[in-house]
């Protein structure tokens, strides 16, 4: 079955297939979000098809009015890169917000009261404010 494939197809195709498998397993076990799993599995499968059937990219390209198959692959790669950056950026934003909530919560819990202006009643340096 592998007779018709060249070395490139076997090596890179194998890596991409393994990647898709990891994504599917990851989504099933909730290691990654379902949405991410689906999106990147499709990308992986499309890549796999393009590797095993190189002619298909040229057909798709000419159907879209783009000259060569390689150009189409290049454009798609750039778009996917931006998608990847954007998703990472959004994740980062989310993490920052969570961190802020945590930092805020601790700040309010550990608020110090009455240490200023010598008007404090308590002498303890870190007197926690009861909510």
């Amino acid at each position: 079955m592998l007779n018709g494939l060249n070395t490139f197809q076997i090596v890179v195709g194998g890596v991409v297939a393994a990647f898709v498998l990891l994504l599917v397993l990851g989504s099933i076990r909730n290691l990654i979000s379902k949405r991410d799993g689906v999106i990147w599995s499709f990308v992986g499968l499309a890549t796999l098809i393009a590797i095993l059937q190189p002619g298909i990219t040229t057909k798709a390209a000419s159907a879209l009015g783009i000259g060569r198959g390689a150009d189409l692959v290049f454009y798609i790669a750039i778009l996917l890169m931006f998608l990847g950056f954007w998703m990472t950026y959004m994740r980062l934003r989310h993490l920052r917000k969570e961190m802020t909530s945590l930092v805020r919560h601790i700040a309010i819990l550990q608020a110090e009261e009455g240490v200023g202006k010598g008007q404090n009643v308590e002498t303890s340096k870190r007197q926690n404010v009861e909510n």
Binding site: V103, A107, I108, E112, G114, V115, G116
Partner: peptide, 20 residues
């Protein structure tokens, strides 16, 4: 400085920005 002069002092353990 805040402990010396303010009525209440809250501390962000990590810098989160002025809005936060």
């Amino acid at each position: 400085v805040a402990q010396d002069c303010a009525r209440y002092v809250l501390k962000h353990l990590i810098n989160r920005g002025q809005g936060a």
